[in-house]
Design a binder for these strands. Structure first.
Length: 641
RNA sequence: GCCAAUGUAGCUCAACGGUAGAGCACCGGUUUUGUAAACCGGCGGUUGAGGGUUCGAUUCCCUCCGUUGGCUCCA
C-alpha cells in the first residue's frame, strides 16, 4: 500500500502503483473531474504518475495558479500540433509559458500571418474536441538523442535539459510528440476550447542571439474559460487606452516627425508638464545638497577616446566634423562633468561633492527599438555625479536611494523594482575594483532593506549599477533611475583631491539619475496617470465654461483672477452648449471645470465640476483658489474640494 | 539592425484595379444655450517617397523612409 499525505494532514492509503488520478477519484468524483496535475513531495507530476511508499500529495486543479500555468503550457503544445499539421515542414524549437499565456518558437520559412491565426485556432479547437490523452514517454538521454537525430533544435534542448531521464509528450490523433519536461494536463479536452486565442507573431533569434537564425515566435493567451479570456482581452484594450503615445496625441502634449525619428517635439502642454517635473526636481535636489551644472552637447572626439566611450560605445554615437576637427555629440554627460571637476583643485573638505546636470544626450538607437517617448534617440538625463572618498560610498548611495524614494512617492509610483547589474564582458577596470564596487552597492541596498534582483553581466562598461524599473501600460518594464559606481573614470581623467594628510588622492565617482530620461519619465507618467495629471502637474488646471455669450464677460473676469494668482486656466467661449464644453474639457482631462452662468455671475461665485466626477459644487472663487493652491503646494494627487 | 505588419484630410477610419469618402477638428452662418457633444453650409488629400506592371494603380510588384508588435540592444 502507498500512503498519500494530503495538504490537510490526512493520510489516504491507495494500492501500490495506483495513479494520482486514482487517488483524486478516491477523494471525490468532483476533484477527479477538475484535477490537472499534482505535486508529489513538491515535485510537479502528471495525474498518470503512480504512487509508491509515503508521499506528500497536492492535487492541482485549474483553480490554482499552477494549474493555469500547466494548462497554458499544454495549450502551447496543442498550438504546436496545430501549426505542424498546417505547415508540416515546421521545426519546433521552444515553447514556454509567459504571463497571461505562452509562446512557441518555430523554424518555418513560410511567414505566419495574422490572417492565419483563425485557421490555427480552428485546428486547436479540433484537437481539444478530440480529447486525446497527453501521454508521457520517458527515455535515456542517449535514446532521446537518437530519436531526435537531425533536429538541431531538439538536440540542443536535449543537451540543455537537466537529469538523465528525458521525457516526451504525445497527444492527438496523428501521434504528435514533443520533447518536454511536463507536467501536462491529462487530456487535450481539459482545456476549454473557447478560452484561448493566438495573439501575435514576431521574430525572435534562436537563443536570443542576434547572430543566430531568426525564428518565428507565435504568442497565444489561454485562460480557464471563455469569460476569463474575454476579461483579459478587455483589460488589454483598456490598458491600450493609457498608452502615452495615444494620450500624447489626444492631449496635444508632443509629436514625432519623419524628419527626426526618435526625436521628440514637445508641444506647449507637454512643456508645462516637463517644466513642472523640472521645478520639482530642482527643489528636491537643492534640499539634498546638489549643485547644478551644464556642459556642452558636443565635445572633441579625443575626449571620448580618453573616457573609453569611443572604444565601447561609438556605434551608438553621433559625430560631426567641422574644420577638420571631429566632435562627438555626447551620449553621456560624465566626461563633461569630469572636466568641470578638474577645473579646480579640490580638498577632502569639499567631498562629497554632488553636481547635477539636466544633460541632453544623443544615442543612435537601431531603428527597430524606438518607442514613443520611452525609447528615443535624443533625451535629457537628470544626471548627477557624486565625487567622494571611499568611506562615503555607502552613505552616498543610501542618500541617492532616499532621493529616489522621495521623488517616486511624489508621483505616486509604488510598483517599481530594483535590479543590481554586475560586471559585463565588455568593461574597463580590474576585477578587484569591480568586486569592491559591487559590494558597496549591495551594502547600500541591504542597509535600505530593499528587495532586488541581480542581473549578472548587465552592468555599464565602467561599473556595476543599481537600476530602478517600472512597467508601462502593457506591462513592459522600463528603467528609470540608475546608480552606477565608477572607479575607472576618475583615474582616466586624473581626478584628485587633497586629503587631510596633504597627499593627493583619487575620488570615487558615482553616476546617478533619478528619473532616468525626462522623456521616458514623462511617457511613463502619462500612462501612470492615464493623462489625468494631478493638479500640480496638469498642463491646464482649470477651464472656465460660460453658459452662453451673456456670461462671457463674467467668465473672462474669473479667468483673469485665476491667471492673476498664477494658475493655468483657459476660457471656452465657443458657441456650444455647456454640455459640449464639458465633454471637450473632459476629453482634454482638465481637472477643474468652472461653469458660470447668470446665477454665478449675480452671486459672484463659480460652479465647479471635477474631472471624473459628475458632482458639482458652487463656491466663492477666492475659496476655490486657496484650496487649489494648497493642493498644488502639497502635490496632492486628489482633486476633491 | 533582424522578422512581420502597416502608412489614405490635422485626428479616427472607409473605398481595394476604373476620376478618393465619412465623422470629429477648422472656417462662415443660424441658435443664446445649465453640466459628457444643437443645426446648416464651406474649406481640406499628387492616398509616405521613388520606380515598375497596366489603357488605367490608393489598390498589384520592387526599393527606400516612417510607424506598430516582437527579438537583440538600452536611460
Amino acid at each position: 500500500m502507498a500512503k498519500a499525505k494530503l495538504p490537510d494532514g490526512s493520510i489516504l492509503e491507495v494500492a501500490d502503483g495506483a495513479t494520482v488520478a486514482d487517488l483524486a477519484a478516491q477523494i471525490g468524483p468532483g476533484l477527479a473531474r477538475v484535477a490537472l496535475a499534482a505535486k508529489l513531495n513538491d515535485k510537479l507530476v502528471d495525474l498518470s504518475t503512480s504512487l509508491n511508499g509515503e508521499v506528500d500529495v497536492v492535487i492541482i486543479t485549474s483553480k490554482d495558479d499552477m494549474g493555469l500555468e500547466i494548462t497554458r503550457h499544454s495549450c502551447a503544445h496543442i498550438m504546436a500540433e496545430a501549426i505542424c499539421s498546417i505547415w508540416p515542414q515546421t521545426q519546433l524549437v521552444y515553447g514556454p509559458t509567459v504571463e497571461g499565456g505562452f509562446y512557441y518558437d518555430i523554424d518555418l520559412d513560410t511567414p505566419i500571418r495574422p490572417e492565419d491565426f483563425e485557421k490555427i485556432e480552428q485546428k486547436m479547437k479540433e484537437i481539444v474536441k478530440a480529447d486525446t490523452p497527453f501521454e508521457r514517454i520517458q527515455m535515456s538521454r542517449g535514446d532521446a538523442r537518437s530519436k531526435m537525430a537531425g533536429d538541431k533544435y531538439k538536440l540542443d534542448n536535449i543537451d540543455n535539459a537537466a537529469g538523465d531521464v528525458l521525457s516526451f509528450y504525445k497527444h492527438g490523433t496523428d501521434g504528435f510528440e514533443d520533447l518536454c519536461r511536463g507536467p501536462h494536463i491529462p487530456r487535450t479536452g481539459s482545456i476549454d476550447a473557447k478560452s484561448f486565442k493566438i495573439m501575435s507573431v514576431a521574430g525572435a533569434y534562436w537563443h536570443g542571439d542576434a547572430t543566430q537564425k531568426m525564428l518565428q515566435r507565435v504568442y497565444g493567451t489561454c485562460w480557464r474559460n471563455k469569460k476569463e479570456l474575454a476579461d483579459y482581452l478587455f483589460r488589454l484594450e483598456e490598458a491600450k487606452k493609457r498608452d502615452h503615445r495615444l494620450i500624447g496625441k489626444q492631449m496635444d502634449l508632443f509629436s514625432f516627425h519623419e524628419e527626426g525619428p526618435g526625436f521628440a517635439f514637445l508641444h506647449p502642454k507637454g512643456m508645462r508638464i516637463w517644466n513642472g517635473i523640472i521645478d520639482f526636481w530642482r527643489d528636491v535636489h537643492q534640499r539634498y545638497e546638489y549643485e547644478e551644472i551644464k556642459t556642452p552637447i558636443m565635445l572633441n572626439e579625443s575626449l571620448w577616446h580618453k573616457s573609453g566611450h569611443w572604444d565601447n560605445y561609438k556605434e551608438n554615437m553621433y559625430f560631426t566634423t567641422v574644420d577638420d576637427i571631429t566632435y562627438a555629440v555626447k551620449p553621456m554627460n560624465c566626461p563633461g562633468g569630469l572636466l568641470v571637476y578638474n577645473s579646480n583643485k579640490h580638498s577632502y573638505r569639499e567631498l562629497p561633492m554632488r553636481t547635477a546636470e539636466l544633460g541632453l544626450v544623443h544615442r543612435y538607437e537601431a531603428s527597430g527599438q524606438m518607442h514613443g517617448l520611452v525609447r528615443v534617440r535624443q533625451f535629457t538625463q537628470d544626471d548627477a555625479h557624486i565625487f567622494c572618498i571611499p568611506e562615503q560610498i555607502e552613505s552616498e548611495i543610501v542618500g541617492v536611494i532616499d532621493l529616489v524614494q522621495e521623488m517616486y512617492a511624489a508621483f505616486g509610483f509604488e510598483d517599481y523594482h530594483v535590479e543590481l547589474s554586475t560586471q559585463p564582458e565588455k568593461h574597463i577596470g580590474s576585477d578587484e575594483i569591480w568586486e569592491t564596487a559591487t559590494h558597496a552597492l549591495k551594502g547600500a541596498l541591504e542597509h535600505k532593506q530593499m528587495d532586488y534582483q541581480i542581473n549578472e553581466g548587465d552592468g555599464a562598461f565602467y561599473g556595476p549599477k543599481i537600476d530602478f524599473h517600472i512597467s508601462d501600460c502593457l506591462n513592459r518594464s522600463w528603467q528609470l533611475g540608475t546608480i552606477q559606481l565608477d572607479f575607472s573614470m576618475p583615474e582616466r581623467f586624473g581626478l584628485a583631491y587633497t586629503a587631510a594628510d596633504n597627499t593627493e588622492k583619487t575620488p570615487v565617482m558615482i553616476h546617478r539619475a533619478i528619473l532616468g530620461s525626462l522623456e521616458r519619465f514623462m511617457g511613463i507618467l502619462i500612462e501612470h496617470y492615464a493623462g489625468n495629471f494631478p493638479i500640480w502637474l496638469a498642463p491646464e488646471q482649470l477651464r472656465v465654461l460660460p453658459i452662453s455669450e451673456k456670461t462671457n464677460d463674467y467668465a473672462a473676469a474669473v479667468l483673469s483672477q485665476l491667471k492673476e494668482v498664477g494658475l493655468i486656466a483657459t476660457l471656452d467661449t465657443s458657441d456650444d452648449k455647456v454640455g459640449a464644453k464639458i465633454a471637450r474639457a473632459h476629453a482634454d482631462k482638465v481637472p477643474y471645470m468652472l461653469v458660470v452662468g447668470p446665477k454665478e455671475s449675480e452671486e459672484g461665485v463659480v460652479n465647479v465640476r471635477m474631472r471624473q466626477s459628475k458632482e458639482t459644487k458652487t463656491i466663492a472663487l477666492s475659496d476655490l483658489i486657496s484650496i487649489i493652491q494648497q493642493k498644488i503646494a502639497d502635490k496632492s494627487l486628489d482633486l476633491m474640494i
